[in-house]
Design a protein around this nucleic acid. Structure first.
Length: 770
RNA sequence: GCCGCGGUGGUGGAGUUGGUUUACACGCAGCACUCAAAAUGCUGUGGCCGCAAGGCCAUGUGGGUUCGAGUCCCACCCGCGGCACCA
């Protein structure tokens, strides 16, 4: 029997045994209540795992283990978000096929993740780049297509010149590519979109009923950007034309002294003949179009624009003639692309009016236009449809063919998956590498059987991750993306844990998919993740971000090698509040290691002989039950740091004793087990237990043991604590005051002073006001 | 600019309905073990004054409510995150 704590020996041993015994398999249709505990699955990058990944994974593992002990049938799966640009970029650089490098990376990730002893059900592992998986990603595309939620359109789209592909709005926030940070430009291209905007109101309403962090909800609300207002037409004088504007402040229309059109507004070309300074106007439009979004935004304070000479509009509220401007502070893509400017009310309009010396009239508060019905109620959203086509190779092909006779034809479901071809050149040309594949385009129209051509583009990887949580419920299904009964049993996920960076990306898209399925009657719920919690970043020592370039990345393999997985797990839970960003502290890791080492040594103090009289320790028993209560409650609330602290306190007390009652140690191991599973299992087996510690029930705490007969009553003088007295817990006010008055440290304060008042809080304190 | 969140020792952080601020851990100091070091164990550790007993001051700043405020209210300062010409 080893006397020393040796995690390098015990951890692989138990990991192997747990796997052999299938200890963590989720059981379909079990009678136990289900608990679906989900991690955001990782992109298997070439760099391997960093210490940030396992922080979230450890938290869900603690909860999964705890819930199993509480009698739940837990689904705790892991998989790989395997499609995506880095693998393809790597292929361009090294000529290693993405399929090969991705599978190497997955292998590496899996080994690393396994070394933590997480209780995943590996039989449900998924890989979004496998044909068995992306077959169903393509099925989802067709499902949306058939329900009028996928369409091809020519539109101005974000283009990343470095990645050589278009991007969704969500991936081009602040006009930077979220992959490579390059500034994005605008291109007018024909692309595939998903009609997420059909669900604006549902996506908003759903937020009210899910348990998510408030900041994430706020971000989604802002991103959807619902705004209620009015649309009203302004006539162009002496023309048969009208300019429709959108405003949220129709009541300020009497203060409207000019109109502003976005440079892309259609009426500009229609009015071409009537604009006297058309050359100047066209020049402005050209220069505005050339400007990047970044340049436009830089001009927030300094507004530019040109007045349209020779045309005027009429304010319908007071029939006054007002000038029309074209200016790029008005956006073509929002509202009607035209605004009524009320410089007295709106800062932006005021800045513009000041620069161009325009009239500023105090706006009379008038709802007349709305009441008469001249202005029509209108709701606008900032959310745009989701652009899903990508001009890249390493993604799921879009299951559409183009036929000269029939046009755009969806691939029949029976022909899925449309396999990624292998005869491709990865060098990006601005077109999808699939364009040049021969095998890929050798296809006949599913409708008329004449020669046809496949769609060249692949899907955004966020499409793959918009439905993956369903697949875990039924990962082998060959007939459906997941069977209805299994979806009903397991879904939605009860807890979802991951980084906050997905706030308006994955988390919005996944909600959209679920809502589309729900409306179509395929599932019976309309939110994928009932409870969401964000994991806080782990920073490098000194509080800066870990990054390869700074060389301050902590590799979990090294930590495990030196201290073991249990130490790393407990450290990451103990370092601070779970959702907070906290700096790595190597010294702190050592402290946790010492804690586990001490627990290991505790086993030799456990009184185990049947022939000796049982060791009793009321003190330890009381503390044990307090700890059971605290650890359970803290796990439920994801306050892991204080749960670990409670375990340390009990450990410290046990250390002080010469002998520890077996029952106290036994129950201590049960509550330790979710955090340090290998150590707990090892010591559990050393107690002679044949069955895994994880097949035990979570201990119940004994309330009666926590109630003390005597309590400490704090005695204050004028609100300042000056001492305390021991008293029966239900001592009366009169008795307590008397006791306090006469206690050593208090009576000298009262000597020769008048007690004006004595405040008594039952079982807690006495405060003398003197 | 707008919307969130936060500010407690040398450090990461604990603090129930307002009731002994600083749990737990790191670090540091002293001691023990050792030829020595590491490891381990024990003791101490908010600041100031004091030999001590003890006292005074401390939860970003300034006010307020209260017998009593880290906690509640008002104003301000600082930090972090998000949004940012969306009419």
């Amino acid at each position: 029997m080893s006397k020393e704590y040796n995690p390098g020996e015990i951890e692989p041993k138990w990991q192997k045994l747990w796997e052999q015994n299938g200890l963590y398999r989720a059981e379909d249709f079990s009678k136990k209540p289900k608990f679906y505990c989900l991690d955001m699955f990782p992109y298997p990058s070439g760099a391997g795992l960093h210490v940030g990944h396992p922080k979230g994974y450890t938290a869900t593992d603690v909860i999964s283990r705890y819930k199993r002990m509480k009698g739940f049938n837990v689904l705790h799966p892991m998989g790989w978000d395997a499609f995506g640009l880095p693998a393809e970029n790597y292929a361009i650089k090294t000529k290693v096929h993405p399929d090969k490098s991705t599978h190497q990376n997955i292998k590496h990730f899996k080994e690393q993740i396994k070394s933590f002893g997480f209780s995943y059900d590996w039989q449900r592992e998924i890989d979004t780049s496998s044909p068995e998986y992306y077959k169903w990603t393509q099925w989802f595309f067709l499902f949306l297509y058939k329900n009028g939620l996928a369409y091809k359109a020519k539109a101005p789209v974000n283009w990343c010149p470095k990645c050589q592909t278009v991007l969704a709005n969500e991936q081009a926030q602040n006009n930077k590519c979220d992959r490579c940070e390059s500034p994005v430009s605008q291109k007018n291209l024909e692309q595939w979109f998903f009609k997420i905007t059909d669900f604006c109101d549902d996506l908003l309403a759903g937020l009210d009923k899910i348990d998510w962090p408030e900041p994430i909800k706020t971000m989604q609300r802002n991103w959807i950007g619902r705004s209620e207002g009015y649309e009203i037409d302004f006539e162009v004088k002496n023309q048969e034309k009208k300019i429709r504007v959108f405003t949220t402040r129709i009541d300020t229309i009497f203060g409207c002294t000019y109109l502003v059109l976005a440079p892309e507004h259609g009426i500009l070309s229609a009015l071409k003949e009537n604009i006297d300074n058309i050359k100047e106007v066209e020049g402005y439009i050209e220069s505005a179009k050339k400007k990047t979004e970044i340049e436009r935004q830089a001009e927030t304070k300094d507004k530019t624009g040109v007045k349209l000479e020779g045309v005027v509009a009429v304010n319908p509220a007071n029939n006054k003639e007002i000038p029309i401007f074209v200016a790029d502070y008005v956006l073509a893509g929002y509202g009607t692309g035209a605004i009524m400017a009320v410089p007295a009310q709106d800062q932006r309009d005021f800045d513009f009016a000041k620069k161009f010396n325009l009239l500023v009239i105090e706006a009379a508060n008038s709802w007349e236009m709305a009441e008469k019905g001249i202005a029509k109620k209108k709701v606008n959203y900032r959310l745009r449809d989701w652009l899903v086509s990508r001009q890249r190779y390493w993604g799921s092909p879009i299951p559409i063919v183009y036929c000269e006779k029939c046009g755009e034809v969806p691939v029949p479901e029976s022909d899925l998956p449309v396999l990624l071809p292998t005869d491709v050149d990865f060098m990006p040309t601005g077109e999808s590498p699939l364009t040049k594949s021969r095998e890929f385009h050798n296809v006949k129209c599913p409708k008329c059987n004449t020669k046809a051509r496949r769609e060249n583009d692949t899907m955004d990887t966020f499409v793959c991750s918009s439905w993956y949580f369903f697949r875990y419920a039924d990962p082998q299904n060959k007939k459906e993306f997941a069977g209805k009964k299994l979806i009903d049993y397991w879904c939605p996920a009860d807890l979802y844990v991951g980084g906050a960076e997905h706030a308006v990306l994955h988390l919005l898209y996944a909600r959209f998919f679920v809502k589309a399925l729900c409306v179509a009657g395929l599932i019976g719920f309309d939110e994928p993740f009932l409870k969401l919690r964000n994991v806080g970043l782990i920073l490098a020592e000194g509080g800066v971000k870990m990054s390869k370039s700074k060389g301050n990345v902590v590799n979990p393999d090294d930590v495990i090698k030196q201290y073991g997985a249990d130490t790393l797990r407990v450290y990451e839970m103990f370092m601070g509040p779970f959702d907070q960003a906290i700096a790595w502290d190597t010294k702190g890791v050592g402290g946790v290691y010492r804690f586990l080492q001490k627990i290991y040594k505790l086993q030799f103090k456990v009184q185990s002989s049947k022939f000796k009289a049982a060791v009793q320790s009321l003190k330890l028993e009381k503390l044990l039950h307090k700890t059971i209560k605290k650890v359970g409650e803290d796990i439920e609330q994801m306050k892991f740091n204080t749960a670990v602290s409670a375990l340390m306190i009990l450990n410290n007390e046990m250390e002080k004793e010469k002998e520890i009652p077996l029952e106290v140690f036994r129950q201590f191991l049960l509550v330790l087990a979710p955090f340090a599973p290998h150590l707990a299992e090892e010591l559990w087996s050393k107690l002679g237990r044949k069955e895994s510690v994880f097949l035990q029930e979570w201990p119940e705490y004994d309330k009666s043991l926590m109630e003390e007969e005597t309590v400490k009553i704090v005695v204050q003088i004028n609100g300042k604590a000056r001492g305390s007295v021991e008293a029966a817990k239900d001592i009366s006010e009169a008795q307590a005051v008397e006791l306090a008055k006469n206690s050593d440290r208090i009576n000298k304060w009262l000597l020769g002073r008048e007690i004006k008042k004595a405040v008594f809080v039952k079982g807690k304190l006495v405060n003398f006001v003197i």
